[in-house]
Amino acid sequence: MPDSNNINVEFTLNGNPISIDVAPRDRLLDTLRYALDLTGAKEGCGEGECGACTVYLDGVPANSCLIPTYQVSGRAIDTIESIPADALSDMLASGATQCGACTPGVVMTACWLKRHPELLKTHTVRELMAGNLCRCTGYDGIIDGITDGCQSNYDRGNAS
């Protein structure tokens, strides 16, 4: 049982095993950005409001500013760096990004949502995207980019 000031953490990062020593106080966001040079996730608020630091923890979106790094031991983390560019053409075309600071988080939630169209039977896109604050787009470009991508596997026009 680790009871010392440094903790070795082994987890899966973007599909690859990784081992790293962290301090108990380290936030996953800082570990990713400053120790692992994965700077896609951004710090917008440091309190779980803006969602710019969104990553997947075992496949579900979570704010990496609110995750102590040691907690991801044995778990799977996926970051924006795992998303291939060719998955994002709808969002590019719809104007889903402007300044780009919220965008990595937006894309993480959006891609998760696209992979789980069944969520739209109970939730609206606008509710599910509410954890990602964007100050540029007014969200329409984002919503359009998601619903465009969902069209193939979800009948948007008759959703209820």
Binding site: T39, G40, E43, I80, E81, I83, T97, G100, T103, V107
Partner: peptide
């Protein structure tokens, strides 16, 4: 948007 894909994929490097 020229830098759109760079932003969407999180590769754009901001000051921090």
């Amino acid at each position: 948007r020229l830098e759109g894909i760079s932003k969407l994929t999180g590769r754009e490097r901001y000051v921090d």
